[in-house]
Structure formats: C-alpha cells, structure tokens
Design a binder for these strands. Sequence first.
DNA 1: TCAATCAGGGTTGTATGATAACACGACAAG
DNA 2: CTTGTCGTGTTATCATACAACCCTGATTGA
Lengths: 258, 258
Amino acid sequence: MTLKLDKVNRGPHLSTLVASSISREIAQGRLKPGDQLPTEQALATTFGVSRNVVREAIARLRSEGRIWSQQGRGAFVADATNATVLTIDYETLQRADSFRNLFELRGMLEVQIAALAATRRSDADIVAMEQALDGMRMAPYGSVAWLKNDLGFHRAVADATQNPYMGQFLVFVSERVRESILAAGNQQKSDDMARTTLGEHERILAAIKAGDAKGASAAMTRHLAGAASRVGLPGGDAEAASPTRHSRLRKAVRGRAG
Amino acid sequence: MTLKLDKVNRGPHLSTLVASSISREIAQGRLKPGDQLPTEQALATTFGVSRNVVREAIARLRSEGRIWSQQGRGAFVADATNATVLTIDYETLQRADSFRNLFELRGMLEVQIAALAATRRSDADIVAMEQALDGMRMAPYGSVAWLKNDLGFHRAVADATQNPYMGQFLVFVSERVRESILAAGNQQKSDDMARTTLGEHERILAAIKAGDAKGASAAMTRHLAGAASRVGLPGGDAEAASPTRHSRLRKAVRGRAG
DNA sequence: TCAATCAGGGTTGTATGATAACACGACAAG
DNA sequence: CTTGTCGTGTTATCATACAACCCTGATTGA
C-alpha cells in the first residue's frame, strides 16, 4: 500500500492501476492469504482516488479469485490455489526468461496436441487447417493477416483433438509468447523465412491428414525448433519438451477416419 | 440484454450477475466482436441496477480482455484471442465431458513435466516432494490435508522443471479438475486407494530422483491412469495423451509392479 | 453468575447526482 | 474543399448518502 498513484499517468484506467498495485502486494508477500485488506475508504485515500475506483479494482480482484469480501466485515486475501483465472501480468512477461519458459510450455502442449490431432481429426478440421494455410500464403510474412492465420492454423490443429480446452490453452499461451516477443523486440524477417515456415506447416498438415501421430509430433517439433531459431532462441529447448526422446516407447498410432 | 435481474437473488454481487450476463451474450453470439455495447446508463436501466454496478461489471470484463472501452466512445466486444486471462466458468465446468477433457489436458502437461523434472530437479526440489509425500502419509485419504499435499507434490514436480509457468498452469488445471470432480460428485474412497496412490507417487519420486526421464513419465502415466479409474473414468483416456502409449507396457504394469 | 437482547459504530453493497475528459458529427467561415 | 468551432453523447471519476450486515460491548433479565 505504499504506491501513490500519479494522475499524470493517464494510460490505463485508475482502477487497473489500483488492482495491479494490490495484486503486487499479494504476489510479493506483503499481503498474505487470510490478511485483511485496508478498508475501501482507506485504500481510496492512500491511492488518492475515489472509493468508486477502489471498488472497481476490488471487483476485478474478486473475480480473479485473489480476494474475497463480505459485507460488513471487509476484504481478505484468498489462498493462492483459489485463483479462478490464469493470468500473466505484463511485468512478468517482460522478464528475460519469460519468453523461453513460455515457449517451452507451448512446445510441450503443441507437440502432443499434434499427435492427438492426427488420431482424432475430422474432415472439417482438415479444411480449417487448409484455409488457414491459404491465408498465410496470401499474406506477407509477419503481417497481421499472416500472424492471424498462423495462430488460426495452430488453433485448428488443437481443435482437431476434439478437446476444447486444448485450443483455449494453446491460444492463451501462444498470445503470451507473441507478447513476450514484442516485449523483447528482437525479430527480423525475410522471404526465406516465409517459405520455410509454410513448408513446416505443410508437413504438419500432411502428417495429421495421414493420421500419422508420430510424424505429426515430429513435424511440430521441427516447426517449433525452427520458430525458436527464427526469434533468436537456441532450438534445443523445444526438443527437450518433445516426446521424441521417448521414441522407442512409442508406437505408430493407428489412424481413425481416413 | 434481455435479462432483468431479480433483487431477491442475493447470493453473488450484482456486478457479478451483470458481468456473467453480458458474458453470456458474447459467448452465445448475440454480441459479436466489434459490436458496441449499450451505454452504461442503458445497461443500468435494463438490468435495474445503478450505473456503478454496471461499471464494476465492465471493469471485470475489461480485465478479462472480453471487452475494451474508450472514454467518449463506448465499450466494444473484443476479439476472442484478446483474452488476457484464462478462465473456465462454472457453467462450462459442470458439463459432462468437461472433466474428461480437463483430465486429458492435465495428463498431457504432467507426463512431460515429469520427464523434464527428472533431468532438471535440484536437491531442494526433491526435499519438497518428500515433504509433500510425508504430508500425504499422515493425512487420511481424501481429507483436505491429503488433497493439499497431493497437489503440493505435483506442484513440486512441476517446479522441478525450473520453469515457473509449468507449476502455474498445472495448479490451475488441477484445481479445475478437482472442481469438476466435485461438480460430478461421484467419488468413493477406501484405504486401499490411499496405499495405491502413495505407491504411485513414490515411484514417480524415485524416478525423478534417479534422473530417469523415461521412468518418470511412465510412472506419471500410470499414476494418472490409476487416478482416472479411481474417479470412475476409463483409464485409457489419460494414456491417449501420454507419449508412452503402449498397450503391452500397460499390461505389464497392471498389478503394482515394483 | 450467566445468557439473551439490544444499541452503536464500522464496513461493504448500492444508488444517485455531478463534473471532467474525450469522441464525433454538424455547421459555418475561409 | 478544408478548417475551426461548437454541441451532444459517452466514458471516467468524484462525492455523498443510505441500506445491509458484522462485530463488540453494554444492558437487562433470570
């Protein structure tokens, strides 16, 4: 509760600043689970805002499961596991290792998603992937349309698992990865990259189309390694999360609908 | 915008009801991305609440990335990919296939997390796992303390990957799995289950301790298959997400090897 | 003594009105 | 056609008031 908000800072809403400020107090342990927050009035005066703004901030934290409040008593910090939403604040996203870690997590998900998609994909899923691929072919590399279709392809692969949470999680992680790339700001593009990336996508699609789970995850692993190197990351990390290292244990998974 | 809130309903906050109501409008497609929401005043009158309540609801939706607003213009529905937080509402959680899908996602994460943990774990990570295991041994099966230490063990494994997002995601998914179990309400417990579960954990720990990535993921796969059957799910589902999909191996494992 | 009741202050939940900041179109002046 | 101004509508914020509720402690009654 030390931060005094500066009115000159007129970027985000005041309630956002208050919320992230309280959030930081919790994350850094100055407010522990079970602790009672200062009263809304007290928060309003310490932050130099109206009680209304404080209430909007608290409503936000409450919806995230970070705090809970009871009329007549006050607001209290909730247990960490009570968090009902998963959020990565921009501050964390900017840390140097954030990109690497997020990329690793995404690789973990995506390599297995590709394998599962190969065994479960429907014809409609294939069509969605091909449409996204066409969208990438027509857009310039790195453009908004390109990125949109790139994400759309990966989303289509995830949806082919017939598990809606796969797509939800993958898109979330992928968006965070993209943001952390922007935060780092180190990216160069070339026509060669476009061709390479498209080829990687095509190989993924071919494997999924053929119902080849092993081939799909392998193609995805290669794609992620390539993507890693394209944004200046040693490609070995994506592979560490891939099942390729357990290849002896795996068998070719029988395809379903041909 | 058809719902008229009933004041008699005094469970959650009014802002929560308004937020979920608008949220539903978006989810069901009656409000599409780019659409402008009614003015705060209009929402207030249609919902029969004060403008203050509407603002708290909007603050919440804005923090979730579902809408964005600009002073002097209005509030607009954001693109689906703009979601800055990952949230699974209780309504979705109650659906019959939710548990199965979440369990599959968790398995995907956890099996690879186990392998990665085996190659990266520090001594402190091992200590944390052993502490959680001790906590499980002393608590009655299914008790709050037991569940807490169970989650603690899996969290310790995830933290052993030295990637903070692993634990963050795993805990989030695990909590949703637990909630969906509670929503389904089908669980029976026995002392035998406690012993079996503990044994599964011990084998995971042993493999991680030995730095055996292959063994760790295999042990985790077995554990998840066992956990699935304990909550009345065909164990094959967890296996579908694991890289050790191998029916012969599974047969050999059945009946507590090692 | 002990238990029940009640009054009071403090806190959150909600309502209401007002003002500032901003966006946008209409409209007149050049 | 361009530009500047103004009026209107909307969000962002402030300030105040009241209702609902919790907690505590005093009062009361047995």
